[in-house]
Design a binder for these strands. Structure first.
Lengths: 130, 130
DNA sequence: CCCCGGCTACTACGGTTGTCGTAGCACAAG
DNA sequence: CTTGTGCTACGACAACCGTAGTAGCCGGGG
């Protein structure tokens, strides 16, 4: 049972982020959050997204008082992993290394992050050879 | 002049891969290549994709004999980098580290690849502190 | 000379994504 | 009771993506 890939568009992702970062919220809350992030969408647009996301099974809602409160049913991690997998599959037939190398070469990292990275590699190495 | 992100769908990407892997080709060549890869698309479908990709400026064509020969104008590397960038931006506001960590934790690497990776980190480190 | 096979051009169409508008319901304020 | 203020439901629409059919051109074989 390979979990089916979670396909979300950019705007849908922005809505998911609002839920991830702010916890369960109403439509209006999400909208405000999007506005704060510079995304000027109408109230009904947000409602549409939340409904569609619920259809897709990635958010859930329950009514509290007058309005529905929506919450994410999937984690940012799972979406990240899914997106990476898709990228790797579509561009390199599943070979992750080229993507990894590009990532390291083209993005900026702080010394701390580099240290963290090195440690992770050591762990990997140990696991591999241990 | 930040280069605009290259947005390609999955099937478009499959066509690009045919060009990357087989060099300049005719529509028929690309179609055969897709068929070999298990993608049963009609001739005209391939033609449509190549035309659209040319519209987008990512492939070019010139007529040789009776048929047009298409070639990729952008590299697989540039697409990779662009996709990574988009992913990182959309999910973590540009912070690459979480994505990197997920990639390392969830994909498989051979000892050779790990060694290569470690070397790259050392380079990074040297560049950073040097 | 006429048809056949391959090639391009044009059109089409359903699904998804991003974006709203409008209508209608329910509750609080006057 | 009437009105306004949210909130939800439903419909709409353009752009883009995946996919393909049809028409029409052109050169080679009979």
């Amino acid at each position: 049972m390979a979990k089916k890939p979670i396909e979300l568009g950019e705007a849908e992702l922005a809505v998911m982020r609002a839920l991830w970062e702010g916890g369960p919220q109403t439509v209006r809350d999400v909208m405000n959050r999007l506005h704060e992030r510079g995304r000027a969408v109408a109230y009904t647009t947000v409602l549409t997204f939340l409904s569609r996301l619920e259809q897709k099974g990635v958010v859930a809602s329950n009514k509290r008082d007058t309005a529905y409160v929506y919450r994410a049913k999937i984690s940012r991690q799972s979406v990240t992993v899914s997106r990476i997998r898709t990228l790797v599959d579509q561009l390199y037939d599943g070979a992750a290394t080229p993507v990894l190398l590009h990532l390291i070469e083209n993005e900026r990292f702080t010394p701390d992050e580099i240290a963290q990275l090195r440690k992770l590699i050591d762990d990997l190495d140990a696991r591999e050879s241990g």
